[in-house]
Simulated scan of single mutants.
Amino acid sequence: MSHPPAEIQVDLSLVRQLLLVDYPRLADARLFLVDEGWDNFTFRAGEHHAVRLPRRAVAVTLLQNEQRWLPILAPRLSLELPLPVHNGSAGPRFPWPWSVVHWIAGKTAETHNFPSADIRLLAENLRALHQPAPEEAPQNPFRGVPLPTRTPGMEQRLHRQRHHPGVAESELTTLWRSCCETPPADESVWIHGDLHPRNVIIRDGALVGLIDWGDLAAGDPATDLACAWLLLDEPASRTEFLETYGADAPLIQRALGWALHMGLALLDSGEPRHVTLGEATLQRVLADAWTVG
């Protein structure tokens, strides 16, 4: 699996033109590309803002979900969020809606060693987020869904990566089946949907924010609790996180399944920064496989 190609080209000149017409207060701000993810381009605009533009048609709905729902969810959380300050309109220069958002200063969490204070803060914020979602909340066919529905994709990735060092095909298959047999979630709550280290912001050595809310949806909170294995290197830290959150055994088992799924997806992406994270995640999953549940 490779990085999906952009369906539209975006450069600094285009972003400046969009701002000049639609949000002129930032038209003269210093602009530079921060990241080109799977779904969006992100440009820094001055000291306190960023511009997010979809790079694929499939990402348009995700960005609109951020625009509509993130301001509603934000008051529940003490962490900083990239709240939209302006919703840009589609037009002749750019065919899809786009956003100006608050910039959260800091760095992503790939190398962060989470102390107890950060572990508690993350668990408490997720507990506050994971409240029943209304009927009109977005549904995501890839996140928050019952684990068994992800079996075909998991099996395909596992087959492709079966010769990768550290991929124990038999053990991972057995673990996945066990997780899929766990009782499903009994309620649908708000979830972030994509809690990997590049969406967690650290500043001055401490957790301060969560970004990239395009996958927010109603679903199983186990999807988010998989971050225990994506973020936390030590078994004791994962235990502290899950106990602080108040997760019961079925929820933890489903979260372990989601971590397995996400670890394989990262490994299968082929992107070096994701491959490294996928390898680490699968190592942690296997380390906990027979002690969880």
Rank of each mutant, 00 (worst) to 15 (best):
S2G: 01
P4L: 00
P4W: 00
D11L: 02
S13P: 01
L14A: 04
R16G: 05
L18R: 02
L33M: 08
D39S: 13
N40H: 03
G46K: 03
R56M: 05
A59Q: 12
V60M: 07
L62Q: 15
L62H: 11
Q67E: 09
L70I: 06
P71W: 15
L73T: 04
A74E: 01
R76A: 15
R93H: 01
R93V: 00
W96G: 06
P97F: 14
S99G: 12
V100D: 08
A109H: 01
T111A: 15
H112D: 08
N113W: 07
S116N: 11
I119M: 11
A123K: 06
E124Q: 11
Q131G: 02
R143V: 00
G144I: 04
T149N: 08
P152Q: 12
P152K: 06
E155H: 10
R157M: 15
Q161C: 13
R162E: 13
A168Y: 09
A168P: 14
W176P: 06
R177F: 07
E181T: 11
T182L: 02
W190F: 03
I191L: 04
I191V: 01
G193Y: 10
H196K: 09
H196Q: 13
P197Q: 11
I201W: 10
I202T: 05
G214E: 10
G214R: 15
D220R: 04
T223F: 03
A226F: 04
L232N: 07
L232S: 07
R238Q: 04
L242Y: 00
T244G: 02
L251T: 15
G257H: 07
G257F: 13
A259F: 03
L260C: 15
G263H: 12
A265V: 13
L266C: 12
E271V: 14
E271R: 15
E271T: 13
L277V: 12
A280Y: 07
L282R: 08
L286M: 12
W290N: 14
T291K: 08
